[in-house]
Design a protein around this nucleic acid. Structure first.
Lengths: 118, 118
DNA sequence: CGGCATCCTATAGGATACTG
DNA sequence: CAGTATCCTATAGGATGCCG
């Protein structure tokens, strides 16, 4: 996905430059519910490979959306949580969630057999 | 961008399967304000090429988000407007717009010189 | 456990030219 | 005007293996 230049364009493009991408909204949404470690995130989002998960988390970290904490333990333990800035994206994600639920319900009535969870 | 399978996964993934992508949210946002013809859309979103605009509009049409109307005139005239389903995405786009504006304002205070419009 | 490195393929996306 | 068609490059993304 093309990374939009956040220094220009409309306000929606600015948001997209930070949370655009196939996995970022899902990652942020999962982290809205609670702090998660790497393996937990991986299990929560089965469709993402570990490689992509790592890459996207690094970008979210660089953009100040996600806080990464490494605990000095054996076995290693790393957890990810939203920063204040990341939390401020909650209204966007909540709107997306609400729309997805409504859409799936309507599709169900059309016998399209969705299976939606969070 | 990987097209998520809308038949599974969390509710956010369902929404992403319809409006995910670099250009779709921007296109939908522009059409929220008013009906636009192809060239108008192209000018409103300078960063998108005609080719990508066509492709994305076709997908949005196939997903029932956008209504394409061809007028039998010379020169040809085609306009795009949101369907009822497309309009129901407004809360998502409005949340994205609000976040983008706030983010740009804060960046401005950090002297990062954004230039944001709609 | 939480990665990173490497190699590979598929798809997104751009440039340009052409057409009804 | 509103596209198509063609060709091309860049990036997304997957599979696998290794490591502290």
């Amino acid at each position: 996905m093309k990374r939009l230049n956040s220094k220009s364009g409309c306000s929606v493009e600015v948001t997209l430059s930070v949370m655009g991408g196939t996995w970022k909204p899902i990652i942020i949404f999962k982290l809205m519910q609670r702090k998660l470690r790497f393996m937990e995130l991986s299990r929560e989002i089965p469709s993402v490979t570990q490689r992509m998960l790592t890459l996207q988390l690094r970008e979210l970290e660089a953009d100040g959306i996600v806080q990464r904490t490494v605990h000095a333990e054996v076995p290693p333990r790393v957890d990810y949580e939203l920063t204040e800035l990341g939390l401020s994206l909650a209204p966007v994600l909540k709107a997306m969630r609400a729309w997805g639920i409504r859409y799936a319900q309507q599709a169900e009535q059309r016998e399209e057999a969705f299976a939606v969870c969070d």
